[in-house]
Design a protein around this nucleic acid. Structure first.
Lengths: 206, 206
DNA sequence: CGTTTTCGATACGATTAAGTTTCGCAACGT
DNA sequence: ACGTTGCGAAACTTAATCGTATCGAAAACG
């Protein structure tokens, strides 16, 4: 039919928007956030400079800084960990190996910091990140625990809220300490060590 | 000798600085930080307004915002938890009951948020808080664990770094979740629940 | 070609806050 | 009384950054 048919949607007249510019803007945003900026400090001018783009090009696409951040953070979604379901221990280790690996990526690490700190200042953004990134993973983890209780691999009287906090909090806290030290390399077996320690408990087996 | 002798140090001439103003400034700073401001957002003007004080009075005492925050945060030191040393379980519960109670105080909660987020931007401040507030408590906790291993109340093969992260991370994470919910009241026995759950482990006693 | 829209650059006005200075008054010692 | 210093209020300078507007060039279309 027509000479160019890449998109069916009737292309609006004029020069099309550059996909490269859009990606560069998103990348620059995530890079700057990953370097430790919070949303308040993140400046559109800095994003434009880093992306090699005019501010106009940003404001043509997003109404304001928050909208841009919402879009940028939503693209961080990494695939949910694939669990084999053979045993609870194996699933937990696999799950937290993904968490440990993700927590070595500055871009992903900054998400948690934003969620934990900017909840009041940017409720829309935080809520969207929570729905898109956090809740699905929480649900996967909770399902593993429930299944473990059902199969008898875990104690029947598990205090679910406490155990969720124990697993996530331990890994998160450990990785934070490890990150602040020079120990940038994530020790290979850390997920395994944490899961085994928590499964076994601190008290000696009587 | 002299008519007024409150301080031996030869009092410099002129009107003495108002201790009330100083305290009001510190209080205003901690209040504003406790309301969720980070250091960048904290404005000297807001502090002066809240404290009912002129900006001059602030700059006469502290060279800049960071120095003021260093002083203000250093005053948050609450006494180290007093441990009876009868049993490891009892000490851990007592220790974390203090942590839980402190984590309900906005002023104290903001310290952790600053330490975790502004480490790169304000290394002096964070380092001082770490030395003054965090390390002593870490050491108390580590001592309890080491003693427990020695007395046989804890497993001999404890993975100390992991266990430290497990205890602190679990309590911190649980309180954060609890805080974001409406559950502002800290459930009375939460420290006990967490300690017992971690001592017993997740696996059923074989 | 001519039209339309985007491109990056740059200038602009508005706002916010840091940190300094000035001012008139208050509090202290001598 | 007098000199010195602190006090709060206000004006000021400097600097960032937001979001908008304007510009000439470029990229698509017919």
């Amino acid at each position: 039919m027509s000479t160019t048919d890449e998109t069916r949607a009737a292309r609006p007249a004029g020069r099309p928007r550059s996909a490269r510019a859009e990606q560069a803007i998103i990348d620059a945003t995530l890079d700057l956030l990953g370097e430790g900026m919070n949303i308040a400090e993140l400046s559109i001018e800095a994003i434009a400079a880093r992306a090699g783009v005019g501010k106009t090009t940003i404001y043509r696409r997003w109404a304001n800084k928050e909208d841009l951040c919402v879009d940028a953070l939503a693209r961080l979604k990494s695939p949910l960990p694939e669990l084999r379901g053979e045993s609870v221990r194996e699933d937990l280790v696999a799950y937290f190996e993904v968490v440990v690996r993700d927590s070595c990526d500055a871009r992903r690490r900054c998400v948690m910091s934003i969620v934990m700190n900017d909840a009041e200042r940017h409720p829309r953004l935080v809520e969207r990140v929570r729905q898109a990134l956090i809740e699905p993973r929480r649900e996967v983890l909770a399902a593993v625990l429930r299944r473990g209780v059902a199969t008898g691999e875990l104690r029947a009287d598990l205090d679910l809220p406490v155990v969720m906090a124990a697993l996530i909090g331990t890994v998160t806290w450990y990785m934070r300490d490890a990150g602040s030290d020079g120990t940038a390399e994530s020790p290979a077996g850390i997920a395994e060590r944490i899961v085994d320690q928590l499964l076994a408990g601190l008290a000696p087996t009587a």
